[in-house]
Amino acid sequence: MRNKFDEQLELLNSELIMMGGLCEEVINMTTKALLSGNPKLAKEVFPLVEEIEKKEREIETLCLKLLLQQQPVAKDLRLISSALKMITDMARVGTQAADISEITLLENITKENSNIHIQDMALATIDMVNGSISAFVQRDLELAQAVIDYDDIVDEMFNEIKDDLIKLIGQDPSIGEYAVDMLMVSKYFEKIGDHAVNIAEWVVFSITGIHKEDHE
């Protein structure tokens, strides 16, 4: 029964996994380019971001088609509505990765001067994005919750970097441009963490029917 619908839902699922995979790839590549100060690698980020945006439009079209043709209810409706929200956050991860790569291309942040905290923060947000995608794939509520909880740690890392940079400017005012770029990069990572949290919250909603905002 409803074989065609089930096939379409399966397709939606695999498309989301594919888009999630692209997000993981783009943020890994962005981080690698930033931390190694490699402009060639940074440039490779942009086609990947375009691919993510293309995937977003494809999934959006598929969701609208499913809503129109199948009039989904219950868990099907939750999956499709969550998908529509999740792809926006996934696409924003791509856009912010592109923003970071543009700063990498300015070459104010080099391998020598990139500080230890930005590396920790980048790795933490990679974990968050990976975690939110895995939570979706495995329908894992605990993992989704872990991603949501981790947001506070990443926010704290952002504050540490900000403090580091304020200190550095105090010691050497000539590093202003580096410091501003670094602050923006860390803010982008912090935003990527927020998008991972949003994705995880929609994973929770698609499984349980309860969204965070229901409790607020």
């Binding site: 029964m1 409803r2 619908f5 089930d6 989904p72 209810v73 219950a74 868990k75 099907d76 409706l77 939750r78 349980t208 029917g209």
Partner: peptide
């Protein structure tokens, strides 16, 4: 009932997968 049914039978029926 239509957004988050508690019973599997309800879910199966309203999503067209009854049986």
């Amino acid at each position: 009932i239509f957004s988050n049914p508690r019973q599997k039978e309800t879910e199966d029926y309203i999503t067209g997968r009854f049986g």
